[in-house]
Design a protein around this nucleic acid. Structure first.
Lengths: 199, 199, 199, 199
DNA sequence: GATGAATGAGATTTCATTCAT
DNA sequence: CATGAATGAAATCTCATTCAT
């Protein structure tokens, strides 16, 4: 009985995986429920055993796409590490999620705005909370005199996030580097910029 | 007779404006030709006097979205200015276009991948050329010892572009700042990072 | 003023030629007024200076397609020639028209049934009169004991006409013979069949 | 499960029947999918459960329209009968198919040329093979000295086929005879012509 | 748990036609 | 004489969804 439910959930997860993959590839409106069913090897109507509507599927996929970001930031902020290490950890974490849940994140990034307000709110809320925590990170740095005094922390947070997210859009152009190396480089850019220091 | 054609082109431009606005708002697949026609106050079928297919409309809108970037970079590279000023000019130019052609650029960013290969190529080509010119900017800086020796110039270029483009996605979250101020801040970030210099 | 009208008629004829060509090629419903206009190098709407509706164009083309058959049969029947020569003349005449007005005839053959009853009647009437005259030809032959006594003249007439018309449908398969030679062969077939005579 | 598929095929056949009837009546371009659906008592879009496109429906109908001709000719050629009986059997067989699959054949005759090349080829190939077999029949006759020495067998084959097919076009004019009688008369015409034999 | 069969709404596109200019 | 600009209706096709089995 619990096993029943368990099996159902496992299959449901496969359904969302398929939905995520197709939404990521063709966009929410560009991917049809037939496409999703086809990828699963089942028939269109059978999907409705696992979700109530395509919209609900989008919502679930988006939720998965943001999930974890907030919690991870809490851990990073709480950790006993230097601020620049926290910035590095943030970038690594963000890009790490991109690696592990690429399709879910892409859908979150590109298609969350196709959800009706009510459904979208839950997702946007999570995203905002994440933004605020990243902002806090920079604020700490300014307070501790590690980061430039005049720094607009909100802007810096959006920059960090936007920079990381932009990696998701690399299809045609991708420099074939390990994501870890990209994360290092990007964290460095945020911390020090490209300009040579006057030594 | 030239006037005739002129008038046609003006109206056609209005049609593409409407298409751009709706594609930007709802996505290519989410926006219907009826939506576009409604915004123009004409009947759906009448659109086809101005374009041959929705797909062609998307292509035109995307082309408009990338137009100007390459040429502007040529001017910036040729100008007699410091390298950091060139970086600033690049960021300002990029965000300036975002202000002036916001909807076209959003469509280019989010929906160009809905075009079939052939049509997409023309657009992607332009984008790649722009990327290469930004990369050259960083390469120059490294050569002249103004930018850090180990800098991955390709990555830096993608970072600059991705960072600027991420501003296009600010709907829900936008800090109400003048784009000019954002450009200053972002250029600064790229040049110097957030970390306080050891003086 | 008469010259005016004359010029108009000439141009109108070109319009019907174009219509005939396109109806013959794609069928009445498959050919659009745009197609016709394009072939004439004018714009769609301009056609309506020369006809009132596509349907009227079809009617005119069909009329041209049957025109002449009746009159020619009258001449053949009246001529002072043997009955087998009359049959030969009929086949030659029929196929000759096919050569000279191929497209008009094809349209008559394939698309007259797309006309509404009223318009169709005028055309069908002509066709029936032609059939009756061919039938008369065979009846004469039977009366004069030249053609087999039990011959069903109506059927023979339909056979002659159907046989000739079938040549119009040769696109893919056509034996590249002069129409005259085909006419000879077909007249011979009707007169004598393929069987060798017991001598 | 085989029964499932069986039921599907039965219904699908009804769909093609309806399509054939309407294509025959109004022509491929003149008959709409709504017309077809209406005749079946289902909704327009539901048709697409049974075929992928109107074009595919046309192809299927045409295939049905030519099906059987080749095989029947093989049997006739192989049979132990006189050559004139073979000609009679051919005409009877051809007109018999016209009786049993009238609408399919009409569509094949009038609308196969509306198919795009690829789809059309499959159908035309069958038709050509049939033509060649009828031609062979006449060639045999010439070889055996039963048919006139100078006979153009290709032309004779096309004549036989064209003559039989012309019966399909009788709407307005049909002499209400049994098809069998028509077949007898036509076979006779082909074998002996209309002319009285000099006894 | 999944399918077969269908639906209703909507999408894009085409077309014959009109009419002021 | 012909065109530019548009329209209204229809055509083909796709899709999310339903529900009996």
């Amino acid at each position: 009985m619990a096993a029943r439910k368990e099996k159902y959930r496992r299959r449901q997860r496969e359904v969302f995986d398929a939905a995520a993959a197709l939404f990521a590839e063709k966009g929410y409106h560009g991917a049809s429920t037939s496409d999703i069913a086809a990828r699963l090897g089942i028939k269109q109507g059978s999907l409705y055993y696992y979700f109530e509507s395509k919209e609900e599927a989008l919502e679930q996929v988006c939720l998965f796409g943001v999930a974890g970001f907030v919690q991870r930031m809490d851990e990073i902020l709480a950790a006993d590490t230097s601020l620049s290490d926290k910035v590095r950890a943030t970038v690594h974490g963000h890009l790490g999620t991109l690696r592990e849940r690429r399709e879910y994140m892409i859908v979150f990034l590109e298609d969350r705005d196709k959800l009706p307000r009510e459904r979208r709110r839950r997702i946007t809320d999570q995203a905002h909370e994440y933004e605020r925590k990243v902002e806090r990170l920079f604020a700490l740095g300014v307070a501790e005199n590690r980061f430039a005094a005049g720094l607009d922390c909100r802007l810096a947070a959006l920059a960090l996030i936007g920079l990381c997210n932009s990696v998701a859009g690399w299809h045609d152009t991708q420099p074939r580097m390990a994501l870890g190396a990209i994360a290092d480089a990007y964290a460095d850019l945020i911390l020090h910029g490209v300009t040579v220091r006057p030594s």
